[in-house]
Structures are given as C-alpha cells and as structure tokens.
Amino acid sequence: MVDDQLALGMIGVSAGNGHPYSFSSIVNGYDDAGLAESEWDVIYDYVREKHPSEIGLDGVQVTHAWTQDDAETERLCAAADIPEQPDEFTDMIDDVDAVVIARDDYETHARFARPFLEAGVPTFVDKPLSLDTDELAWMRPHLEAGRLMSCSGMRYARELDTPRANIDDYGEMTLVRGTVIKDWDRYSVHMLDAIFNVIDADPVAVRAADAPHGSVAIETDGPLVQIDTLGDAAMAFDVDFYGTEKTTRHPIRDNFRAFRRLLSEFITQVETGEPAIHPDETLKTMRVAIAGQRAIETGDHVKLDSIEI
C-alpha cells in the first residue's frame, strides 16, 4: 500500500469476457476515448451513464494490469488509466496489495492464482472458481484463511434486494427458476449465486432434463430450483420466485452495481482478512456446478455428497 492507496493488480482477459474493463473502470474511473476504443460497447455505455459519484472506489487503485496479449493490455490500461504493464503476470506480486483474476476460463484459474496465494497476496478469482475437485481442495485453505474470494456479481444483484429482504412474504417457497445465456459450466454459477444468496436452502442432488440446452433441476431441503442455460440466445439473466403467497420475476440487468458491490466486498475482505463469503458457501456452489455438469453429460441423478472436496 502506497500513500494509503491499496494497489490492485488486474489479470485478464478471456474470450467474450469484458470483466477486466468493467472492474478496472469501476475502481479507477475511465478514460472516455480509451474505453470507447476498447470495443466493449456495452461496458462503455453502462459506465458512462453513471453519475460521477458512482465511479471509483475510495482508497483503491488498479495499478498493474497484465493480459496474455500486449496490445490487449495496452487497450485495458488506456481504458482505465492503469499505469503499470508488467511483462509477466507474476512480476506484480511484490508491488500489489491484492489481485483480481478477471478471466472466466476456469481451467486457467489455479495456474494464475497459485503464485499469488502462495505469496500471501489476497486474490479474487472470477466465476466459476474451478470445476476440478483437486484444485478446489487445494484452494479450500485459502478460502478459509480469507486470502481467496470467488463468486458471480449476480450474488449482489440490486434487482434481488427486495426478495432477499422480504423472503417471508412468499409464504412457502415451492419453486425458484433461473434462466441465463451460454453454457452450464461457465454460466450456471450466475444463477446459483443469485438464487442461493436469497433463499435459505441446501442443495441435495441434481438431475438434468432432456432438453436442447443445459437444463438442471436441483433438489434442496426447501424448494425445487430449476436452472436453464440457453446457449447462444437472446439476453437472459432472470430469476423467478414462486411461493404460496407471492410470485415475482426479476430480470437482472444492472451489471455495474453488481460488480461494484462485488469489488467493495473483496476490498473489505482484503482489509479485514475475514472471508466475505463463508468458504462452505463457495464450495457448495462449485459442488452444484460440478454435479450439474456430470448430470448433463451422463444423464445420472447426482448427489451432492458424492462430490468430495
């Protein structure tokens, strides 16, 4: 930490994922021309529509950025006024107070996280953390020690504040449905984090439906949770709650505030050393993601307790 400013490193990018640009712009603010030229038009549009008071996190700056492509790194740094571009991602270990691995190709997460975690650098890993049980077992102590955090921004979605605060109004919850684009392995975590941060239920087992897309029913000790991942489809990040007293539908579209809340929670974890999310919750989410993938691939009814981490 230099001059009471927490130095944050940003590592990305992966195909189709603009989180390095979103996260860096939320923390640092943005350069209008630089972000416009990044070709992430959706991010440019929703960031520049925000009031200046919502841009930037006090006491935090993204000071270092690295991607696997030098030209991409230059675009990212230009978009969010990031001053340092190390040659290798590990070169920033001694110069940052924390790091964000803003890639959602989960197969690479352990490789990028390991050097930082082993050096004691607090690390946020983009969703999903990992679908490999051996990797998750290695990561578990770091989650428990408050060195590692991972989740979807949908966990903090503004659109779910009202049901979260008024869950008793629904009576007995009988069904919760989540619908999202893309594939189960990378995008189911959006709905898992969104839903299980609202309802008080523990997953027990999963089974896949015979559908042209990833469709998984999650048996819990409460309501049935149905999640559909639609593949390449029109925009959908939607959660529906069905109770005996009330039913509501919640399209989730405010990525900016979800990401801002996520980053704020991570910074609080860095400052306090206390996990922002209980490690068991993170591992539970990954167990459901793994079980759902197995169910889709095999057609089996997969029990959560069969997945050991």
Rank of each mutant, 00 (worst) to 15 (best):
F241N: 14
P122G: 02
D134Q: 11
T268W: 02
D126Q: 14
D95R: 02
E39S: 09
D193K: 01
Y30C: 00
T133W: 00
L304I: 05
L192H: 10
A98Q: 01
F237Q: 13
D4Y: 01
I101R: 04
C77W: 00
W184G: 07
V27E: 01
V100I: 12
M173K: 04
T285W: 07
D202G: 07
L283W: 02
W138C: 02
E107K: 12
G178R: 11
D168L: 14
G56V: 08
S38C: 06
Q85G: 05
F241Y: 11
P279Q: 00
F259D: 09
P163Y: 08
V99E: 03
A217D: 15
G292A: 05
V27L: 01
G243D: 10
L57N: 06
R164T: 11
E118C: 03
F237P: 06
H213D: 05
D161H: 12
D41T: 11
P141V: 01
Y187D: 11
V60D: 13
H301V: 13
N166E: 07
L263M: 02
I290P: 09
L283V: 14
H250A: 11
L175E: 09
I43T: 06
D105C: 02
W184R: 07
T63P: 04
A276M: 11
R261I: 09
M286W: 04
E245T: 05
Y21S: 05
T133D: 03
F116P: 08
P251Y: 10
N28T: 09
T174V: 14
D161R: 15
Y46L: 05
G243N: 08
R207Q: 06
H190T: 09
D300M: 01
V60E: 09
E88V: 08
A119N: 01
T133M: 02
D126W: 08
V100H: 05
L6I: 14
A295G: 01
H19S: 06
T220N: 06
L148I: 03
M235V: 15
L230W: 04
R114W: 03
Y30G: 04
A211P: 12
E308T: 13
D161S: 12
P52F: 03
V189D: 12
M1E: 00
Y106K: 00
Y21M: 13
S264Y: 07
N255W: 14
V96C: 07
V100W: 15
